[in-house]
């Protein structure tokens, strides 16, 4: 029972961060129809931006977060403007490949500036043990779940209620119609990339705090794909369900079976889901016209 509970908490913490990473991915896909293979590298760059502000420049925690977020937003907007916009209307292969190229460039830039060794960063979240139903669990995992939860709920409300959120949904639904209603599609595209970069930054910093500041953060980006397929590429609530499911699944499999199998189990689930529901569990079924 105690193993089960701690595995659950670890799985939920992982899943919550996964959901954050997947959120950025879904934001970009929904608004701009771009599959961003560089999502993991956005997490990586986010974590290192925060590291630079917090450890190297010794900024106070809150200022460091804001400064890193500002830089991440700048990066997101620049990438959209200079790399993705020229490819609007090109086929899916080109768009996928350009984000793969981008991921390679971002990763090697981080490597050029920071090297490959693990960087020391003081823990932000308290690592004290707390008793939960008789099981001791590290507090930082619980706090990571809470932070990710707040951000996810915030984004969901933003989408449902705010002007910009509704504009983004309109663009996602029908671009020409949104244009005729006076929505600036360009601004929405830039906003989508900026928000995605921010959520990736938060996910990256949380992940770095729970594990370590090193290149492995980027590998987390690949697990985003099973998550978004579970949730459907264009569903925001779907990412939460998908993230938590995949996080728990990985945690249980590595706890009860073996860690190697846990790496591949998301992909097996993914293949299974795609066989039964080609548009994911919460994804919108598209009807094609010739």
């Amino acid at each position: 029972m105690s193993t089960f509970l701690s595995l659950t908490v670890y799985g939920l913490a992982d899943g919550a961060i996964l959901a954050l990473a997947a959120l950025g991915f879904v934001l970009i896909y929904k608004a701009t129809q771009v599959i961003n293979f560089a999502q993991g590298e956005f997490l990586l760059v986010g974590a290192y931006l925060f590291y630079t502000c917090f450890v190297i420049f010794r900024l106070p925690l809150v200022v460091a977060v804001v400064a890193a977020a500002a830089l991440a937003v700048l990066l997101g907007v620049l990438v959209e403007r200079f790399i993705l916009r020229p490819l609007v209307g090109e086929n899916a292969i080109s768009v996928i490949m350009v984000t793969i190229g981008l991921s390679s460039v971002l990763k090697s830039l981080v490597q050029l500036f920071f090297g490959t060794s693990v960087r020391e960063q003081p823990k932000i979240l308290p690592t004290t043990q707390v008793k939960l139903l008789g099981v001791s669990i590290q507090l930082d995992r619980l706090l990571a779940i809470v932070i990710a939860g707040i951000v996810l709920v915030g984004f969901t409300i933003f989408f449902r209620r705010s002007r910009h959120g509704i504009a983004m949904r309109a663009v996602a639904d029908d671009q020409p119609a949104a244009l005729t209603m006076g929505i600036s599609v360009r601004r929405v595209f830039a906003l989508a990339w900026a928000l995605a970069a921010t959520s990736a930054l938060i996910a990256g910093v949380l992940l770095a705090d729970l594990s370590a500041v090193d290149q492995n953060i980027a590998a987390f980006g690949l697990v985003v794909f099973p998550v978004v397929i579970m949730g459907g590429l264009d569903s925001v609530p779907g990412t939460i369900v998908g993230g938590l499911t995949i996080g728990l699944l990985k945690s249980y499999v590595s706890g009860y079976a073996d860690a190697g199998l846990a790496e591949v189990i998301p992909y097996i689930v993914l293949t299974g889901v795609l066989m039964v529901r080609p548009y994911g569990i919460f994804g919108e079924t598209r009807i094609e016209r010739v």
Binding site: I35, I96, V228, L233, G260, V264, Y267, L270, T271, P278
Partner: peptide, 20 residues
């Protein structure tokens, strides 16, 4: 049954499964 982006992700899964 899959097209474009969904297919790309499905083949990514096949890559990971074969490697495993």
């Amino acid at each position: 049954r899959l097209k474009g982006l969904y297919l790309a992700i499905a083949t990514l899964a096949s890559q990971e499964i074969i490697l495993f």
